[in-house]
Amino acid sequence: MTTTQSTEVPTKAALVPATSPALRIQSAVIKYGFIFVTVTLFAYFALSEPSFRDSATLLDTLRYVSVAAILGLGVTLTMAVGGIDMSVGAVAGLGVTVAAKTMVSYNQVGLVAILAVIAAGALAGLLNALLIVVLKIPDMLATLGTMFVIQGTKLVLVDGQSITPGMTQADGSTAPGKFTEGFLRIDRGTVLGVPVSVLIFGALTVVAWVFLARTRWGRVLYAIGANPEASRLAGIRVGAYRALAYVLSGVLASIGGLILASRIGQGDVSAGTSQLLEAVAVALVGTSVLGRGRPNVWGTALGAVLIGIITTGLTIKGLPYYTQDVVEGAVLILALIFSFTLSKRRTA
């Protein structure tokens, strides 16, 4: 194989030292190492635990990871422009509260709740964009700041209480509304046996992939992440595109919040907090999954699924739920080793 290539392209062969089969296998293992590890684990779970092989288990796993995955897509967009959105968990949590408030306290229909949640997400994204693009605060610090502000705002909105149908409100009256049937179907309903939330996850993945990998806007986002000054000198309005990435991230996070709200069925004030680290982890794992070494949509989606498989598998194996964070953290570190340490050694 090596020889045919070097005869076809003699000039390149002169530049690049011939790679031995052993080296190629090594580089393939590094490139696809993370997938390799997960497939091995998957096979192990599937062979040793019959319940893991059940399609319901797998769909449940996907349903479970859909929120972190959708938030991770937003993080991926912001990572593409060289930043990172740390406020996605808080924005999702805000979405839960806004959905509950709209339907339970204001007695509105599900569609109004959906629009309100998405508007709130876009607004949060605009706030991030303002801090980062206009006020020039470093991405991570700015979004950490908004994370706190959004979490706090959420508590202020509901006077620090979770919103449940029929609850007694601050003015002594009883909350007039409830989560509508249609809204609850976002997470609990199925189409042809597939949970709606999983379908949303799949659809958003495809849309985000087309946007980031196939449109000129996505191309420009990557250019900004890779070399902002060159992008500016190529005539790109760098600030506008970075703002776009954060607004889209806010909108995606709010969609994650909609699924979360539908899953919980009430305005849980603590919702969303655990989603942040998972979303960031998923996006980081995504940079390594396909050996691209840069944020990419398929990597993020696949990364979420892989993390889901591992945690589900270990849960079925009898690992207590409270060890889950340790496992997810270890998976993240493993992925980072693949994408930084090992791939560096390969190029050195």
């Binding site: 449109t215 000129r216 191309r219 420009v220 990557y222 250019a223 890779a226 070399n227 000054e229 060159a230 992008s231 000198l233 190529a234 005539g235 790109i236 840069r294």
Partner: peptide, 23 residues
């Protein structure tokens, strides 16, 4: 520093300023 996008192909580096016309 000011022109090339690292890791991108030759064609992608050429097209960057005029992507609109190619889309």
């Amino acid at each position: 520093a000011d022109a090339l996008v690292p890791g991108w192909s030759l064609a992608q580096n050429v097209s960057l300023p005029f992507l609109r016309a190619l889309s």
